[in-house]
Each structure stands twice: as C-alpha cells, then as structure tokens.
Amino acid sequence: MAASLIRPEEAQRIWVWLEHDGTSLEGVSLELLAKGRELADRSGEGLVGLLMGHELDSLADEALGYGADEIVVAEDPLLEVYTTDAWCDAAAQVVLEKKPNILLFGATPDGRDLAGRLAVRLRTGLTADCTDLEIKTDEPALMLAAEVTGFGGGVAAIIACKENRPQMATVRPGVFRPALRRSHGEEGVQSRCPVRIDPGRVRTRVLERRIGEAVDITKAEALVVGGRGVKGDFGLLETLAGLLGAELGASRVAVDEGWIEKDRMIGQTGSVTRPKVAIVCGVSGAMQFTVGIMEADTVVAINSDPEAPIFESADYCVVDDLFSILPPLIRELENSR
C-alpha cells in the first residue's frame, strides 16, 4: 500500500476541525471537543482544536474554553468564506506541519466537502459519517475504532485505519453531547500556524449565501403534523413545534380544509420527509399519507381512534384526544427549558 505522507511514529495528538460561522462554533464541533477530550484522557494524548478563517481573535478566545489543550489558528483573507480549494490547501499545510494522529470533522456539508478531499491529498484513510468513536488502547499505536452504519442503517461496521496517518473521520452531528464551557483557569493555550494560499488555485467563488429561508419540510429534523383531528386549530401544534425547533406538517385533509399551506402537505402527492422525529396528531394514516413519513427515524402518533391505521406506522402510540395530550406536553417542555 502507498504510505501516507505522515508516518505513524511521528503522528501525535487528537485534532478536531472547528467549524464556525465567524462568530460562534458549530454544535457538532462542540460535540467533537467533548468526545475528543474523553478519548484524549483515556489515551493520554493531547486534544487540539484547529480553527481556520479570517480575523478570528474573539472566536479563538471563545474556543479555548471547551476542553482543548491547544487551539491552533490558521488565518488568511482567502479563508473568510469556505471554499474547497483554499481550505484544503491551508488544512493540508497545517496537518503536514503539525502531524496529527487523529483528525475529526463534523459530517456537515462543509466538513464532508473538506475531509473527503484532504484525506486523498494526505493519502490516508477516512471513515465517514461515524456514529461512535473509540480508542483501542491495547493496540501498539493509538488506534481509532470508528463505528459507521450503512445499508439504510441496517448494518453497523467498525472501521480502523492501521498504518496511515492522520486517522480521519467525519462524525454525524447529534451523536455526542456537546462540551460545556469550562471555568477560567482551565483553558488551553493558543498558537498560530501560518498558511500560504495561492489565489490562482481557488477554482470556486462564492457569489451569494442564503441562510434560513423558505420552509422545506423535506429537510426538517423534527415535524409536528396535523390532520383532520386538529379540527382547524393548528395553534397547539405550532406551540409544540416552536419548543422542539420543528416544522409544521399536515395531511391532505388539513390542507384541503384550508387550515394550513399546501407546501406543508406530507404524502404521496405532497412531500416525502425524513425527520429524526415526527409527532403525528389527529391523522388517520391512509397509505397515501404514511409513505411520506416512512423514512422518519421515530414516529409518535396521537389519535383518539384506537383503530386508526396510523398506529401501525408509529413507534409510540397515544390513543387519546390530542387536545388533552398536547397542553400538558407543552407545559412539560416549557418547564424543562
């Protein structure tokens, strides 16, 4: 096998690529700092956060507080917004200079975009979209055992990268708990790593960015869905959705009745959705509807009719009136805020 550019014996420490929007760190980066700390403590290795961008002073100070022993900052005007070429060139320079043993990314659009290219440039292995990470301390060299799922989630595999360094992985957001801010005096140190980017090598240009626009229920991570049973009143569902950071969805009947906009319709002639969780209220559950929630991770169904077919397609079934369940549920969620 072709060797990686970094030899195993020279590689050291666990690194986390810190994704940010210029003012704060991504949730998944905080999650990786927490998991990275745990792995570092178990193996006696150091934990490093890699912060890339332009004019990062305040963010670098902020990043120090989440458990990393060191924050390495790489700055350049060409790193002001993410572009594959500029970021990959810069990241490769830092990695070749500092020689990480393990290098973790969030499996976000940009994290996957960068990691996939960087791994090939470094001629090393990359385990993608991991759902768990472990350090094998019985191995001679510090070895990462990364769990991934495939085949629509039906098969889980443990992947290792034995000889090539760094051992790279992208990790699915939300699988680890995020790091908590530490008190003063427990923070790591900050250092800088100079990078040189050739503008002529940057082959993409960002023309426009739009964040947080029109509703697209197919992308929602959580959905609160109403049907005939809401009897025209989506108010409670809207409150619940607000508390969960969820989008509102609807069955065809609710759209037909004009209770809610058509772009929220789920099912055969509406949208097929893929949320982590769908709370389906007062929907009977004809197949024309359920094909639209088939790919949800978890389905909660609330319906007063015990015979409603929706219960066949639900993980958690509540046979009760939604108007008697939702108010106490909303109170519970409000109290825990």
Binding site: G153, A156, A157, I158, N164, Y316
Partner: peptide
Amino acid sequence: PTTVAGVRQVATPDRRRKH
C-alpha cells in the same frame, strides 16, 4: 488504508408500535 474490524446487524427499522 481502512479496514473493517467488525460488522453487525442493527435492529430492523420496523416501527415499535409501543402504546
């Protein structure tokens, strides 16, 4: 460079239908 150290079947994604 990567090797599969083990695989296992994950519980079927069938709905739990827990009341």
